[in-house]
C-alpha cells in the first residue's frame, strides 16, 4: 500500500479508537443532562475514579482490567443513583423553576468535582500512575495498532450498542426515553419519574466509570485528569444535540476522528480545535447537528 493511504487508515482507525471512548463518556453525560437536566461537571471524575480503581485492582490485587468492568460499573451506578436520589432530588424540589435547577445543579457538581478529586488525592496522591496491559502490536492491513486500543474500541462500541438496544427495546428504556422527551407527560403516563431520573444518573455514572476502566489501559492516570473529559463530553453532547443519545454516540465518534486528524497535524492544538468547532456550531446550529 502507498504510504499516504496507510497514513489515512492510521488516522481513521485511530480516530475511531479515540471516538469509542468519547462516545461512551458522552452517552453518559447525555443521559444525565438530557433526562435528569444535570450538566454534570464532575462527570470526568467518575472516569478518573474508574481508572484509578482499575489501577489498584490490577496492580495490587491482580484482577484483570476487563473483569474490573464488572466491578466498577455497578459501583459507579450505585453512587450515581444515590447522588440523584439525595443531592439532586433535594435541589430539584427546592428550585423555583427548571432554569434555576440547571444552574444550581451545575454548581453543585462543580463542588462535587472538588470533593471527588480531594478524595482521590488522599488515596492515590498527586503523581502520575500507569500500568501496562495488552500492550503489543496487532497488524491491521499494514497499520499496526496496540491490542489494548482495539480491545477498548470493541468494548466501548459493544457497551454503547448494548445500551442503545436497552433503551430502544426494554420497558425501562422506553420509560427513560419518554421522560427525556417530556417529564410531565411521562409521569402522567405512569412513569415513576424519580426512579427514572435516578436510573439515568446511575447509568451515566456507570458509563463514565466503564470508560475510565477501559481508558486506564492506555493513558497515565492523575487525580486532576477528569475535567478535560468532562469538557470533551460537553462538546460532544452539544454537537449531537443536548439529550440525544444516538447523537452523543455518533458525535463522539466524529470528534474522535477530528481529534486524531488534528493531532496528526499538531498535537497541542487538538483541544483548541474541539472548542473552535464547538463554538462555531453553537452559533450556527445551537440545537446540534442531530438536534430537532
Amino acid at each position: 500500500m502507498p504510504e499516504s493511504i496507510v497514513t489515512i487508515m492510521d488516522v481513521a482507525i485511530g480516530g475511531l479508537l479515540l471516538g469509542g471512548i468519547y462516545a461512551l463518556i458522552a452517552m453518559g453525560l447525555s443521559l444525565q443532562y438530557g433526562v435528569a437536566r444535570v450538566l454534570n461537571i464532575s462527570h470526568g471524575e467518575f472516569i478518573m475514579l474508574g481508572a484509578f480503581s482499575t489501577f489498584t485492582l490490577y496492580t495490587v490485587v491482580g484482577i484483570n482490567p476487563l473483569i474490573c468492568l464488572a466491578i466498577v460499573g455497578p459501583i459507579a451506578f450505585i453512587i450515581g443513583f444515590l447522588l440523584q436520589r439525595t443531592l439532586f432530588t433535594q435541589l430539584r424540589t427546592s428550585a423555583p423553576n427548571p432554569g434555576a435547577f440547571e444552574a444550581s445543579s451545575l454548581l453543585a457538581t462543580f463542588g462535587l468535582m472538588y470533593v471527588i478529586q480531594g478524595i482521590a488525592l488522599q488515596i492515590w496522591g498527586a503523581d502520575y500512575r500507569a500500568y501496562t496491559y495488552l500492550n503489543f502490536g496487532v497488524d491491521l492491513g499494514g497499520a499496526i495498532f496496540s491490542a489494548n486500543k482495539l480491545v477498548i474500541l470493541g468494548f466501548a462500541i459493544g457497551i454503547g450498542v448494548a445500551f442503545y438496544i436497552f433503551l430502544a427495546r426494554t420497558h425501562m428504556g422506553k420509560g427513560i426515553r419518554s421522560a427525556a422527551q417530556d417529564p410531565t407527560t411521562a409521569s402522567l403516563m405512569g412513569v415513576n419519574i424519580n426512579r427514572v431520573l435516578a436510573l439515568c444518573f446511575g447509568f451515566g455514572a456507570a458509563m463514565a466509570g466503564l470508560a475510565g476502566v477501559l481508558y486506564s489501559m492506555r493513558i497515565p492516570l492523575n487525580p486532576a485528569m477528569g475535567l478535560q473529559y468532562t469538557l470533551i463530553a460537553i462538546i460532544i453532547i452539544v454537537l449531537g444535540g443536548l439529550g440525544s443519545i444516538p447523537g452523543a454516540f455518533i458525535g463522539g465518534l466524529i470528534l474522535g476522528i477530528i481529534g486524531e486528524i488534528v493531532t496528526y497535524i499538531d498535537p497541542s492544538l487538538s483541544l483548541a480545535a474541539y472548542y473552535f468547532i464547538f463554538m462555531l456550531l453553537l452559533l450556527v446550529r445551537p440545537k446540534g447537528i442531530f438536534g430537532k
Partner: peptide, 10 residues
C-alpha cells in the same frame, strides 16, 4: 483543602 472546599460548595 480541596475536599473541605468542595463540601462547603455543595
Amino acid at each position: 483543602y480541596m475536599l473541605i472546599f468542595g463540601f462547603v460548595l455543595v
